[in-house]
Simulated assay, not measured.
Amino acid sequence: MIFMQKWIWQLAIVMIAGIFLFAAFDAISAGANKEGKTGAEPSQYGLPPASAGAGGKDSGMDEKESEAFNPKSLMYQKAPEFESYAGVINDQNGDDFLSSSELKGKVVLVDIWTYSCINCIRTLPYIQAWHEKYADSGLVIVGVHSPEFEFEKKRENIEDAAKRNNLTYPTIIDNDRKIWNAFKNSYWPRKYLIDADGYIRYDHIGEGGYDETERQIQSLLKELNPDIKSEMANVSAEGVDFSQIQTPELYFGSSFRRVPLGNQKAPILESIAQNYTLPGLLAPNIIYLEGEWKNNGETMELASNEGAIEINYGSQSVHLVAESARGSTASAFLGEELHIGPEANGQGEIAIGGSRLYRIVKTDEYARNSLKIKIKGAGFKAYAFTFG
């Protein structure tokens, strides 16, 4: 009994000493933040170094010791550094790595996206609005363009997409997905919010959650400046009701295809033209082809001068990721009626050229429809359907 009491008192003394020691280091860390002393050497990769905002050299602790006693390390992960990538657009430093002076002591929003993804495209007006509203308050937005298809690796295509979507914040060209992998990401789009000390404090997968994300931005900015106003950014953006979308994203090429074509050939031959004919009845949410087409892995390419794509889908809008090096036209029919979509001319023709997402159909209501896209011009390549 006496031994047990002695043991309990010894344990209590050790615990009390530990609490005081933790509090002492917490006070050191908080004081360094309060005084604005990062004390860290500039990071060549851009993200705040491990000791930023946590004492650094001025605290008398090295980086490992400072990191070990930062209470945030018990709750949050450090953001990975921006290492090798293909280049940067919309940055004052050109293709050089983002300088640490741009990010040190800042709140950083990392947006991983790719330009032919409709889910990404619909988030961009919000991200640009946050850049315009909060850049002067300490927010730095960094787009990370991690491609899905090969054509999305071309710098000129990414630059065109940034201009088309009116983006003015820096975007890293992450062609080898090194940043994507460093964040252990698996989704487009994906947003990570990083505080001034370099810790990931919030992340969001996919579309939506815009108010929540903006509140998180404001919360982290208020850690730097309590006077940050709580008014939300004014954003004009396309809305979507996901509960009304009955058709998932569908891929054409055999390398990406998750379900077979409705009139798929057997065996599937690579880069060899095969003739496709439409059946009498179409199963829902399945792609059907008409004419001569070649399977190129990522795409199905029209080999004949004319062809068609048909699908029974359920949504309000239909988008097609496509390209045509020689120039082709696409005309959409809902049932037997010509549909004048968002990108069609007065005759209902959509000019297909550069590699991007084309807006084929937009109706007033969510509904199930039979869509036939008549294509003129050999060399037309289809990558994927997306719906909204």
Rank of each mutant, 00 (worst) to 15 (best):
A382V: 01
L278I: 11
D241C: 05
K64S: 14
K294Y: 13
D174S: 04
Y134P: 02
G262E: 03
S116T: 13
L11R: 06
S324Q: 04
D227L: 11
V14E: 05
G39Y: 04
L103I: 09
Q92L: 06
F69N: 13
A40E: 00
Y169S: 07
I245L: 09
W113H: 06
T329A: 09
A266C: 07
G354L: 10
E132Y: 11
I173K: 14
N175K: 05
Y187Q: 13
G56E: 01
S315I: 01
N90R: 09
A162R: 10
S51R: 00
I340E: 09
P260E: 07
W7G: 15
P226Q: 11
F256Q: 06
E212T: 15
G280N: 12
Y366Q: 00
P49S: 14
A233T: 03
Q128H: 07
E156L: 13
I268A: 12
L357E: 01
W293P: 00
I311L: 11
A40V: 07
A303R: 02
G253Y: 08
Y210E: 01
Y366L: 01
N165F: 15
S59Y: 01
E63R: 15
L139P: 03
S254K: 11
W188Y: 11
A32V: 12
I217H: 03
N263Q: 08
W130M: 03
H319S: 07
L224Q: 03
S243G: 05
A273T: 12
V140P: 08
I172L: 11
K154F: 15
D95S: 01
Y45S: 14
F3Q: 15
G94A: 06
T171P: 12
V235D: 02
E35W: 09
W293L: 02
G198K: 06
P342T: 08
F252T: 07
E63C: 12
V142W: 06
C117E: 03
R190A: 10
N90E: 13
P49N: 13
Y85M: 11
R258N: 09
N234A: 08
K372D: 08
G307V: 04
Q77W: 05
E337Q: 10
S304M: 05
G105Q: 05
D160M: 12
K184R: 15
L109D: 03
H131G: 12
I173M: 13
L124R: 04
S101K: 06
A17D: 10
A86L: 09
E301V: 08
K37M: 13
Q244K: 10
M300L: 03
K6W: 12
N305W: 14
E238P: 00
K374G: 04
S29W: 07
P284E: 12
I205D: 13
K104C: 00
R177G: 07
C117W: 01
V107R: 01
E349D: 14
I272W: 06
R201Q: 10
I217T: 04
G138M: 14
M61I: 04
P80H: 06
S230L: 08
L98Q: 02
P226W: 02
V107N: 01
S137K: 14
N285I: 03
V144M: 06
R215P: 02
L282M: 15
L278Y: 05
E323Y: 10
L109R: 00
G198I: 03
F242P: 02
Q128T: 04
S219M: 14
G388D: 03
Y76L: 04
Q347F: 13
D174P: 13
C120H: 03
E336W: 04
